[in-house]
Amino acid sequence: MKKIALYVLFAVFLLTSASVISEPLKKIIQPIPDYSTLQKQITSYLDEQPGVYGLYFIDIHSGQKFGYNSRTVFHAASTFKVPMNLYLYRAADNGQLSLTEQLTFTDQHMEGGTGILQNKSPGGSYSIEQLADYSILYSDNVATNILLDRLGKQNVKDFMRSLGGQVVDNKQNSTCPYDLALYMQEAVRLADQPAGERLFNNLLDNKLKDRIPEPLPPEIKVANKIGTWPPTNTYNDAAYVDHPKRPYILVVTSKDTPGYSEALAVIHQLSEQIYRYQTNRAT
């Protein structure tokens, strides 16, 4: 009888302990989110759109991800400036260059499109840090050309491959949604380091917010970099969305679209749909 009583007491202890431990564990162990429904909805939507679109999504907390045409080749346009800056700041951290080093703007660097240096006359000198800022904040093409002369385009391309880039061409400025998500993920990872923090803050503060950030609530911070290539009606955006409970990376690329306004409407639809899905999951 004593043995039975001891067994009963031990069983009660185990049951009581399990009930005490289970509550904290419930808070720590969250179910893995299922994005299959969202992925099907997005696939159906993009299949119906004129032109070619690509997409890649990463949920920061769970690591869950999905894509659409995720390794299809697209023109990178100015999204290339993200891995270029990653390489630049890593080189600075390794002592291979100084951010205060002065570089000269020459005739060969001149290029139109976006940026503020296109309105300046060649001959001026700018620090690497200032040029890096311009390349992200204003998507400055002249600043990018000056930096690439110093960094070496081949070095940047090799660096992109070292991060896991799948679509990297030594001659063409090409990419894919998967690769752009990798580069943005690396920018987020380095955000708590001195040089990485500067790049991330530039991505947050950049002046071109017409795509993924535009339809979201104004209080939501978005670190992003767009890319535009008119010859192929390409409109891209790679972004980190600081959702209050479910932050995520979203990349949308396009080509052969009817035009800017049509592509913009598609990007807005995708951005709003994914933000809403994250919000509903978090409530």
Rank of each mutant, 00 (worst) to 15 (best):
K2W: 00
V8S: 12
L9F: 14
A11P: 05
S19Q: 12
K26L: 12
K27G: 10
V52C: 06
G63T: 05
S70T: 11
H75L: 01
V82Y: 02
V82H: 02
P83S: 06
M84Q: 15
A91T: 05
G95I: 03
L103N: 07
E111A: 12
G113V: 01
G115Y: 05
P122N: 04
P122D: 07
G124N: 04
I128V: 15
Q130S: 14
L131W: 05
I136H: 06
L137V: 13
A143F: 01
I146E: 10
L151F: 00
V156L: 10
K157F: 11
R161C: 03
G164M: 02
V167A: 09
V167P: 13
D169M: 03
P177A: 14
D179R: 03
M184I: 05
Q193E: 15
R198L: 13
L199Y: 03
L199Q: 08
N201T: 12
N202D: 14
D205P: 03
R211A: 07
E214L: 09
I226E: 13
P230W: 02
T232C: 00
N233R: 13
A239I: 01
V241Q: 11
P244N: 03
K245H: 10
Y248L: 04
I249E: 07
L250N: 05
S254K: 01
Y260D: 14
S261F: 08
